[in-house]
Design a protein around this nucleic acid. Structure first.
Length: 286
DNA sequence: CACGCGTGGCT
DNA sequence: TAGCCAAGCGT
């Protein structure tokens, strides 16, 4: 609610500095969403006179608004007769058709099948189907006895609906290793810097680190000081596991540029992702 | 178009 | 504890 209080109208969000938006988003993850939300507000103001498009096709041109979101808004807000396919519906339909392949290999077929079934009041239909998936055709348990579409369901007929959806093979997570350097000046302020705008944790705040690689290598300290090893932080991302050796030292500020010094009390207001909050905590800050 | 994205809840 | 999982968008 802080978020909507700060920027109650789309014009307000569009006019906000991106780094302020990222600060409010810090800790929530998927930081591309915050950047897209901001870009979306700007697109609505710049290209649509501050009014959102009222069709799925129009909505889908906005940053961060894809097939699901555009269809959901169009059906629910504008009564467009369009199929809304979310993760719940993927599961419901995979069971209904006893889909023999992972959902991602049959997405278009599922959407086509659902589109044919969409009645008038498409928004109510969409919400009812998503609720069916969330409560009756649930991930771990399918309560087929109370399911309104059970009579046509092929997975139920087979006798084991929970076998679906078939999961794709999962690749194993590589490990990356590196060093993180927590520097304070004589007054106890901490050195922070910005990550590049795109990619992993894009635009967020960090402390300096080495390259993350299979082999951490020896630490190359970014400034002169009495460096102390403060243990290790492990963080698991979607596709790799990161193991950082934590180092801290009191250094001379003159040796550094490009970043800024933050009082420890101000750290909670910085756009620090959870990884770097763990790093600072491990170094005895925050 | 298969993969990358971050975090928290659950087991 | 550590591992598994989630929902959807962009590239």
């Amino acid at each position: 609610m802080r978020f909507t209080s700060l920027w109650p109208r789309v014009e307000d969000l569009a006019a906000a500095p991106l780094d302020a938006v990222l600060r409010e988003w810090a800790g929530l993850g998927y930081y591309a969403r915050a950047r897209n939300l901001h870009a979306c507000a700007q697109a609505v103001v710049r290209d649509h006179g501050g009014v959102f498009p009222d069709t799925a096709a129009g909505l889908q041109t906005l940053p961060g608004v894809g097939a699901y979101t555009s269809a959901a808004i169009a059906a629910i807000c504008f009564d467009e007769r369009i199929a809304v396919l979310d993760g719940n519906l993927d599961r419901v339909l995979a069971r209904y058709y006893a889909l023999p392949v992972p959902v991602r290999n049959a997405k278009d077929a599922l959407r086509g099948a659902l589109q044919i079934a969409v009645p008038a009041r498409a928004g109510d239909f969409a919400q009812a189907m998503m609720d069916l998936g969330a409560t009756i055709c649930a991930p771990r348990t399918a309560y087929c006895l109370v399911c309104p579409i059970q009579p046509g369901c092929l997975a139920t007929r087979e006798g084991a609906p929970e076998r679906y959806p078939i999961k794709p093979e999962k690749a194993e997570k590589p490990v990356r290793r590196g060093h993180a350097f927590v520097m304070t000046d004589a007054s106890g302020d901490v050195y922070l810097q910005s990550r590049p705008g795109k990619g992993l944790l894009g635009g967020m705040t960090e402390v300096p680190t080495s390259i993350w690689a299979e082999d951490a290598g020896e630490p190359i300290y970014p400034a002169t000081g009495e460096w102390r090893h403060r243990g290790q932080v492990v963080h698991v991302f979607t596709h790799f596991r990161l193991e950082l050796e934590i180092w801290s030292a009191i250094v001379l500020p003159e040796a550094l540029d490009g970043g800024w010094w933050s009082e420890p009390a101000a750290l909670k207001g910085e756009a620090l992702p959870t990884l770097f909050r763990k790093v600072l905590a491990q170094a005895g800050l925050g």
